[in-house]
Amino acid sequence: MGKLMAIAQRHNIPVVEDSCQGILSEFAGKRSGTHGIAAGFSLHPLKNLNVWGDAGVVVTNDDGMNERLRLIRNHGMKNRDEIAILGCNSRLDSLQAVVGNWLIGQTSEITRRRIENAAYYDAGLAGLPGLRIPPRRPNVKHVYHLYMVFAERRDELYKYCLDNGIEAKIHYPIPLYQQEGLKHLGYAPGTFPVTDRHAQEVISFPVDQHLTRAQQDRVIEIVRKFCHGR
């Protein structure tokens, strides 16, 4: 974020952070979602802070934006009868707010356990042939919405995990710019080589706060077996 904010400032471009997977994560001691003018958070059931259905939050340090967003989420209504701007219907249900309020106090602990689980994986999976753990930078607090590594023979490893009862996932196998829905932007295959390589190599292992050490040991054992030629 340091470099990105510098670019934004130089060109006077607002930064809107997509913090959907990054609640309580930090860069240089500053929380995700508080670097730019605004940030979007998701509270989808699979997120670290999750509610019982689709839900999200936007944070901003801009008063005008705050007021405008509040209007827009409720049809642009200033009060029951008057519409200031035409908006949409994107209100968080009270029911979901109750869940969120109850969980928000637990999010630090959830985060701590995920970080602990990730560190355990990092140690257990270190130095395996054909497997690379992404760099852990000291000025980044990673909250492990996902625990992801790079594998040379990813598709085979993925299948091996599933065959052995481990629910691994791929986040995400097809880069956005190669989606049919983005054809009109005209990007040729290979335009983003790092993204392309990652799409071929990423694999995510379960890292949630309810995971036991025994379950993690099982994941490590299976991955080790695979990397050492089974």
């Binding site: 259905g53 791929i170 995400y172 989606q179 829905g181």
Partner: peptide, 22 residues
């Protein structure tokens, strides 16, 4: 999101799913 399966986006959509609870 315009997804036709877990990975493929055919056109640009939105998120407007009814929660299972509802």
């Amino acid at each position: 999101h315009g997804l036709i399966n877990r990975s493929d986006v055919q056109e640009w959509g939105i998120v407007s799913r009814l929660d299972t609870v509802q």
